[in-house]
Design a protein around this nucleic acid. Structure first.
Length: 262
DNA sequence: ATGTCGTAACGTTTACGA
């Protein structure tokens, strides 16, 4: 049985309900991890997606951030919020177990802090959040069940992941400390799903609304799936739905998805 | 070219975050 798991930073559910619904109908993911719903839980159009055949779990907040999981199969043992800081009120992490036909998968959706301007308090928060992610990723790894962590990492892993790397060199998305923190998590034993399938430059998941970035293909690859070894062994495909960015009223991100033989 | 979006609010315009 093949399970398609997608991640999509929708940049606001109120503005994106149409484009998101169209993409769901075409792409037919079994699981969709959503970021930047920019809505409280009560404001999320849960019934609309239930009518489309999805179970819905949200972790929202007012105006900013917010993550959600849509799943064709029931979601169990839902966790909201990244552990490690009880004071952190930003809604950036949700995880749940979804039963494949043969295997239970622990699916995590994340919206990693942007961190700009850097240096500064927002950058400190980003790096601290990545430290907490490292610790939690290690804990997930120790369970030895298939783990999928997908979302908007706000990390450009390498220069090849930007059309104009020089423009991002001092940015929180590409600074050496950001890249090192990302590598440190990967090096626990995770696979960058897209890079396991596709090498070389020119593959992006985000194009800024400004300055004609899309028309110039001036993009960056910042939405990623990291898989532990048990999940990586199940992966049969991974791709970016680039064409979604050319549609009416698009998000500035496009979906990325994996297929697992689970 | 400080360029475009989405959200919220003492709103018909501004502030913030990205």
């Amino acid at each position: 049985m093949r399970m398609k798991i997608a991640s999509f930073n929708i940049n606001g559910i109120k503005a994106r309900i149409g484009a998101l619904s169209d993409w769901l109908s075409e792409a037919e993911p079994d699981v969709a991890l959503l970021q930047e719903i920019k809505s409280v839980d009560e404001g999320f159009p849960r019934a609309h997606f239930e009518d489309m055949g999805y179970h819905v779990e949200t972790h929202g907040q007012k105006s900013f951030n917010g993550v959600a999981i849509l799943s064709r199969r029931p979601l169990e043992d839902v966790r909201r919020g990244l552990p490690g800081d009880a004071e952190d009120e930003q809604a950036r992490w949700i995880e749940a177990t979804v039963m494949g036909a043969a295997t239970a998968i622990r699916v995590c959706g994340l919206y990693l802090p942007n961190g700009n301007p850097a240096p500064g308090p927002k950058y400190d928060y980003k790096l601290a959040w990545m430290d907490r992610l490292h610790a939690h990723a290690q804990a997930l790894l120790n369970t030895e069940e298939p783990v999928v962590m997908g979302g908007d990492y706000n990390i450009i892993p390498q220069d090849m992941d930007a059309k104009r790397p020089e423009a991002w060199a001092e940015d929180a998305l590409a600074r050496p400390e950001s890249r090192a923190a990302f590598r440190r998590i990967v090096n626990l034993g995770f696979t960058d799903a897209f890079r396991a399938r596709q090498q070389g430059p020119g593959h992006y998941t985000f194009w800024d609304y400004q300055a004609g970035a899309w028309n110039r293909d001036d993009g960056i690859r910042i939405d990623h799936f990291l898989l532990n070894p048990q999940a990586a062994d199940l992966m049969s495909d991974c791709a970016i739905d680039k064409e979604v960015r050319a549609r009416e009223k698009p998000s500035d991100h496009v979906p990325i998805w994996i297929k697992l033989e689970a």
